[in-house]
Amino acid sequence: MTLEDLLSDFPRRDWETVSEPDERVRFALVGLGWFTTEMVVPALRDSDRCEIGALVSGSSDKAARLRDETGATRALSYEEFHEGAGSEEYDAVYVATPNATHLEFVETAADLGKAVLCEKPMEVSVTRAERLVAACDEAGVPLMIGYRMHTNPAVRRMRELVREGFVGEPALVEGSMCQNVFEQISPDPNQWRLDADLAGGSALIDLGIYPLNTARFVLDANPVSAQGTTRSPHEHFGEVDQHVSFEVAFDNGVTAACVASQYAQMGSSFSVTGTEGRLTLSPAFFGEAGLTAERGETEVAFSVTPVDEEREEFDYFADRLLAGRDPEPDGNHGLVDMRAVEAIYESAETGERVAVER
Rank of each mutant, 00 (worst) to 15 (best):
M1H: 10
M1W: 04
E4H: 05
L6R: 08
S8I: 01
D14W: 08
E16H: 01
S19N: 09
P21W: 05
E23M: 04
R26H: 06
R26F: 11
R26M: 08
F27A: 08
L29P: 04
V30K: 02
G33I: 13
G33T: 04
F35L: 12
E38Q: 13
M39N: 13
V41I: 14
R45P: 07
R45A: 14
D46A: 15
E51T: 15
E51A: 14
A54P: 09
L55K: 10
L55E: 14
S59K: 03
S60C: 02
A63N: 01
D68L: 10
T73C: 09
F81T: 02
F81E: 07
H82M: 11
G84A: 07
G86K: 11
G86I: 00
S87E: 11
S87N: 05
S87F: 01
T97E: 04
T101Q: 11
F105V: 01
F105C: 00
T108A: 12
A110Q: 08
D111F: 09
P121C: 01
R128N: 15
L132H: 13
V133D: 08
A135P: 15
D137V: 07
G140Y: 07
V141G: 05
G146H: 09
Y147D: 01
M149R: 08
P153M: 07
V155H: 01
R157P: 00
R157Y: 02
E164Q: 14
F166T: 14
V167I: 12
G168S: 13
E169Y: 10
A171F: 11
M177R: 06
E183V: 14
Q184L: 07
I185L: 14
D188F: 11
D188Q: 09
P189R: 03
Q191S: 06
D197F: 09
A199M: 02
A199E: 09
I205R: 08
I205F: 07
D206Y: 03
L207C: 00
I209F: 04
T214A: 12
D220L: 05
A221G: 11
S225Q: 12
A226H: 06
Q227C: 05
T230V: 15
H234K: 10
H234Y: 14
F237L: 09
G238Y: 02
V240R: 03
H243S: 00
S245P: 08
D251Y: 05
N252V: 09
G253I: 12
G253E: 10
A256S: 03
A256I: 00
Y263T: 02
A264S: 01
S269A: 02
F270N: 01
F270V: 01
F270R: 00
S271Y: 04
E276P: 03
P283Y: 12
E294K: 12
R295I: 14
T298P: 10
E299W: 08
A301Q: 12
S303Q: 15
T305S: 10
P306C: 05
V307Y: 00
D308K: 04
E309C: 06
R311A: 00
F314P: 02
Y316F: 13
Y316L: 07
D326Y: 04
D326W: 03
E328A: 07
H333K: 06
V336Y: 06
V336A: 13
M338C: 14
R339T: 10
R339G: 06
A340T: 15
A340Q: 10
S347M: 05
A348Q: 10
R353D: 13
V356H: 12
E357N: 12
